[in-house]
């Protein structure tokens, strides 16, 4: 059970980087980036190819760069080419399927059993120390920590504030001297570089990439994000970042427990969908209910 929870923690940490990516694009920039699944797989594929060619450390920046590139295309389509924001994500996501197979060398499966990865490098590094068995956890923890610190610092800069303002009041930023197009492009590049990193880490963790590795990531990350939002409501950005990570961990933990109680694994994606629906429509119905009650009360008073 303990090792099961440790695995859940590791996988939760790795997927939390995608949740942080959505925190930036969905919560801050207010763009629903539907290319997440494809960008995740792209990062995984690119990272795997670079690692297989013998550069485990280079695989990280390569995967992030590929993600950023995909984010650039999505952002360019919606800001400069008149493609609707949601459609841009879907189109890029579909196109990425072919791109990803091409990146993986016309194959839909890559094996990294004998490849040096950032995880195996870390294991070698820790050989003989008491932490040796926890090498996976350490790598995942370090990655999440760095991304969190970067994100919190970024959101405090003028650029970060411009990203937040663009998501919060587009009309205001549009009539200011800030070029919203540039802000949206930068925002989606950074956010998708996180997604790529997350994919790269998961692939190296699994020691394999499958073309379907990213399928459903968007919904699962969104579910995590919305779970995380329940904590630290109305607190600052740093707590928002923390909430995103916490949400990812809780999602993973609940999933692992459900598996433990003999839930079939294929139900994961359905559960993620239901969580997203409940988290979004819950407050909606709550609002309607309140309104109805208020009206009923007013009627009684009359």
């Amino acid at each position: 059970m303990l090792s099961l929870m440790q695995t859940a923690l590791e996988l939760g940490l790795i997927s939390s980087i995608t949740v942080l990516s959505l925190y930036l694009s969905y919560s801050m920039l207010n763009i629903c980036d539907l290319s997440t699944d494809g960008a995740f797989t792209l990062g995984a594929a690119t990272g795997a190819i670079v690692a297989i060619s013998g550069h485990p450390f280079l695989s990280i920046p390569a995967a992030m760069l590929s993600g950023a590139l995909s984010g650039f295309v999505t952002a360019f389509l919606q800001t400069k080419m008149g493609v609707d924001s949601l459609l841009a994500g879907i189109v890029v996501n579909t196109g990425l399927y072919s791109v990803n197979i091409a990146v993986m060398g016309n194959s839909s499966l890559l094996n990294m059993n004998k490849t040096d990865t950032v995880f195996s490098m870390c294991k070698d590094l820790l050989k003989g120390s008491p932490l040796e068995e926890n090498y996976r956890l350490l790598v995942a923890l370090l990655a999440v920590l760095l991304v969190c610190i970067f994100l919190v610092l970024l959101l405090r800069t003028r650029l970060g504030l411009a990203i937040r303002a663009t998501g919060n009041n587009l009309a205001m930023v549009r009539s200011s001297s800030i070029n919203t197009t540039v802000i949206q492009i930068i925002g989606l590049c950074v956010s998708n570089s996180f997604t790529g990193l997350s994919g790269c880490l998961l692939a190296q963790y699994n020691k394999s990439v499958n073309i379907d590795i990213g399928t459903g990531m968007l919904t699962m990350a969104l579910a995590s994000l919305l779970i995380g939002r329940m904590f630290f409501r109305k607190r600052g950005v740093s707590f928002g970042v923390l909430g995103a990570v916490l949400g990812a961990l809780i999602f993973r933990a609940v999933y692992t427990l459900a598996l433990r109680f003999d839930m079939p694994a294929y139900l994961l994606k359905l559960i993620a969908s239901v969580i997203v629906i409940v988290a979004i429509s819950g407050p909606y119905f709550h609002g309607k209910y309140q309104e109805k009650r208020k009206r009923a009360k007013a009627r009684v008073n009359n």
Binding site: R158, A165, N168, I178
Partner: peptide, 24 residues
């Protein structure tokens, strides 16, 4: 229309005032 409601007063002001470049 002229301010971002979810951001604090100082953050709104900083957006309008800063001349320190994007990373300040």
């Amino acid at each position: 229309t002229g301010t971002a409601p979810k951001m604090s007063i100082e953050e709104n002001l900083f957006l309008a005032s800063s001349q320190k470049g994007w990373l300040g």
